[in-house]
């Protein structure tokens, strides 16, 4: 397993946000994490990337215990995240934002190649290279956040709500690109409220409710699960 999360709990002030969550992501998989607002999906992402400390439990990445490893060092180990709300640096140009994605790397030539690869995935970004991140539309910012996360050449790509606030056509486009990234060999953990898209494209998926994992299974199977359909797909 590339990522193993073993029974983690996490506190926000006096509120317990995660109650013993365990999940894992295998090499090359696309794993989806779905659930309602406030279920704790984003919190898990923060715990994996090290922005928030866990109160107990263990996170193992690539065979190494990273529970106490600082966030920036986790990037060097191969975890990259497109955060909730995109986290585009508003005062930096598109190009600079992408350069920030490669902040931990020194291999200039390879970085240039990856930049071309990202521009290949998102031609729109190339057109807007010199534009400030803060002045772009929501969809463009989302592309930028995903592209930027790829710039560190991650072993594991964490995507937090890549479809949030996007028009249906753009959602379709973003998920196609996610599938493409996966085909190019990157392992992906994606958090989504758009369960339809996420489940149909994921190898496996977890369902969260109020800080706990309540269900897991392979993507298409969960898509057919009546309880999941009722709760997240708005159909009986």
């Amino acid at each position: 397993m590339l990522l193993e999360i073993d029974n983690i709990t996490l506190l926000y002030g006096r509120i317990q946000a995660l109650h013993g969550v365990s999940l894992n992501v295998g090499q090359g998989e696309v794993v989806a994490l779905i659930g309602a607002n406030g279920a704790g999906k984003t919190t898990i992402m923060r715990a994996i990337s090290g922005i928030r400390p866990v109160a107990s439990g263990k996170i193992t990445f690539n065979g190494e215990d990273i529970t106490k490893v600082r966030a920036d060092l986790r990037v060097i180990r191969g975890i990259s995240q497109s955060p909730e709300g995109r986290g585009v640096f508003p005062g930096m140009t598109v190009q600079e934002n992408l350069d920030m994605g490669a902040y931990t790397r020194r291999d200039t030539k390879e970085i240039a190649a990856d930049l071309e690869r990202v521009y290949g995935l998102f031609p729109r970004l190339k057109e807007r290279r010199k534009q400030a991140g803060g002045t772009m539309s929501g969809g463009e910012q989302q592309m930028l956040a995903v592209g930027r996360a790829l710039m560190s050449r991650p072993k594991l790509l964490l995507l937090d709500e890549p479809s949030m606030g996007l028009a249906p056509l753009l959602i379709q486009q973003i998920f196609e690109i996610i599938t493409e990234i996966s085909k190019q060999g990157t392992t992906i953990l994606v958090v989504e409220q758009n369960a339809q898209q996420a489940l149909s494209r994921a190898d496996r998926a977890y369902v969260m409710e109020t800080g706990r994992i309540v269900k897991e299974g392979n993507g298409p199977a969960l898509l057919d699960d009546p309880a999941v359909r009722e709760a997240y797909l708005g159909a009986a």
């Binding site: 926000y12 002030g13 090290g50 928030r52 400390p53 106490k68 490893v69 600082r70």
Partner: peptide, 13 residues
């Protein structure tokens, strides 16, 4: 409030 803030330091800070 401050006691709770203390627990929210990012990992390794």
């Amino acid at each position: 409030e401050i006691q709770h803030r203390k627990k929210e330091v990012a990992v390794g800070e």
